[in-house]
C-alpha cells in the first residue's frame, strides 16, 4: 500500500480499527491499482476483510467483537 499526496500525508492507527489518513490524494494498493481519495479523511482497512478494499467498511467489528 502506498499513499501519495501533494503535501504531507498523515496516518493514525485507530485501536482495533482502521488507519485514518489525511492529505492523500491517491492510494495505491499492493497490486498496483490506484484508488482516488475523495474525502478529507479516509479510513484504510487493516484487517484485510473489507469488501471495499482499500477502504474500511467496518467489517472488523464482526470479526473482532470489541
Amino acid at each position: 500500500m502506498r499513499l501519495s499526496g501533494p503535501d504531507d500525508v498523515s496516518v493514525r492507527s485507530c485501536p482495533g480499527g482502521p488507519d485514518l489518513v489525511r492529505g492523500a490524494t491517491l492510494v495505491v494498493d499492493d497490486d498496483g491499482v490506484q484508488h482516488e481519495v475523495t474525502r478529507p479523511v479516509v479510513a484504510i482497512c487493516r484487517c484485510d476483510r473489507s469488501s471495499r478494499m482499500p477502504w474500511c467498511d467496518s467489517t472488523h467489528k464482526a470479526v473482532r467483537p470489541r
Binding site: 482502521p18 485514518l20 479523511v41 479510513a43 467498511d57
Partner: peptide
C-alpha cells in the same frame, strides 16, 4: 454511509 461512517465514527 458504509464507507463514510467507518471514517466518521473514529473522527
Amino acid at each position: 454511509h458504509v464507507e463514510a461512517d467507518s471514517v466518521h465514527e473514529h473522527l
